[in-house]
């Protein structure tokens, strides 16, 4: 089981050419001195952020910290000057709500906007990867929350994005489904090798998944934690130390023991891998 903190390059099918490994590759995402304001209030202030190709970055922050604004900017949903924000052209978003077109069958949702030959075949492959081969022709209204979100993942991945943007995609799911989705996301990330930006308010989710966790506070990156624990990650002492530091950055010094207990109780049992 080859699972180190950094995703092993041997596993990734789309890897950088060997000679490029010697020098630092250009970042996949580069945000430089970007400020975004709505009226008088700046939501993002002089933001600087690089994301390396294939890097998994989690963005933590309270409501109103600007994390969704940053994601929307990187997704191209909000305008940004090209000299301040550069992203790969191939990018895809998974939103908190699945946002499947209710009038399109699942496979057509996955293939939304694709042109060319054998779109259905591609959609079948993508849905197979997320374990939804049996729901190809289902209507979105008949999917469970987890299934809908997996379809949304398939819709993002079928575009072979170089940047995958996840906007609290598991927040509305129950705890067990969320754990399965975490495993799925890691599997897909290893297979497709996109840079990932995960916006979340779940500290444990961030530590479980990401190479690097950023804490956003009032439009600024207030803290950064590089997580080098090997995956799959158990809630061991090192994990808890990172959690304590991140909660401290988030301003939660003495967090509710019940909340903490719930967070810990539903840690994935990853020894099954």
């Amino acid at each position: 089981m080859l699972q180190t903190a950094r995703r092993p390059t041997a596993v990734s099918p789309v890897s950088t050419p060997p000679r490029a490994a010697a020098m630092t590759p250009p970042p996949s995402v580069r945000v430089k001195g970007f400020t975004r304001s709505f009226g008088a209030t700046s939501v993002l202030k002089d933001m600087n952020l690089d994301i390396q190709p294939g890097e998994f970055v989690a963005l933590l922050g309270a409501s109103g910290s600007g994390k969704t604004t940053l994601l929307r900017t990187l997704a191209g949903l909000d305008p940004a000057p090209v000299d301040q924000v550069s992203t790969p052209a191939a990018r895809a978003v998974v939103f908190q709500d699945p946002r499947l077109m209710p009038w399109k069958r699942v496979w057509r949702n996955v293939a939304l906007g694709l042109k060319g030959r054998d779109i259905r075949g591609k959609a079948e492959d993508a849905l197979g990867e997320v374990g939804l081969s049996h729901r190809l022709d289902a209507w979105p209204a008949t999917l469970s929350g987890g299934e809908a979100q997996r379809a949304a993942l398939a819709r993002a991945l079928i575009r072979e994005p170089k940047l995958l943007l996840l906007d609290e995609p598991f927040a509305a799911l129950d705890a067990l489904t969320r754990i399965r989705m975490h495993e799925l996301v890691l599997k897909l990330w290893r297979a497709h090798d996109p840079a990932v930006l995960l916006v979340t308010h779940d500290v444990d989710e961030a530590i479980t998944l990401a190479d690097r966790v950023l804490v956003l506070d009032q439009g600024r990156i207030a803290a950064e934690e590089v997580v080098t624990l090997p995956r799959p990650r158990d809630v061991d002492d090192a994990f808890q130390a990172i959690r304590r530091r991140l909660l401290g950055h988030l301003g939660v010094t003495s967090h509710d023991p019940a909340v903490a207990a719930e967070l810990i109780a539903f840690r994935p049992r990853q020894d099954a891998h």
Binding site: L77, V93, D97, R99, M101, K104, L112, G113
Partner: peptide, 24 residues
Amino acid sequence: RLMEAGRSFGLSGWDLIVNVVLPG
């Protein structure tokens, strides 16, 4: 939100109308 999703997946103009606006 569906319009935004459609745009984020590269739909615009006529494609957006046919795939999102009219069925909606």
